[in-house]
Amino acid sequence: MSLSPDDVKRIARLARIEIDDAQARATQGQLNTIFDLIATMQAVDTSGIAPMAHAQEVTQRLRADIVTETDRHAAFQAVAPAVENDLYLVPKVIE
């Protein structure tokens, strides 16, 4: 398997990371080396093996449906890049 510069740009787009043509070319070689390493997995016969998602076989705990958090929006929004009237500011998305 070998990624083209266009593949790299598509992946960067999926990851919401801006990338220019020169960076895509530079990244391409390194990603291909890493995917060559990863490709060694494909030779393993894993038919009948259950995938392991987690180290411990535990189920999600449930808790009582009661409010446990206090209102700390002022502290949390104090670290935001742009806030107005307790709202996070982002560029306009609806015309």
Binding site: R16, I17, F76, P81, A82, P91
Partner: peptide
Amino acid sequence: VRYGYRAPEYTNLDDMYC
């Protein structure tokens, strides 16, 4: 959006993320 670095210049929300 909520914390940390934000690019100084961008054209729209998607461009701000990227």
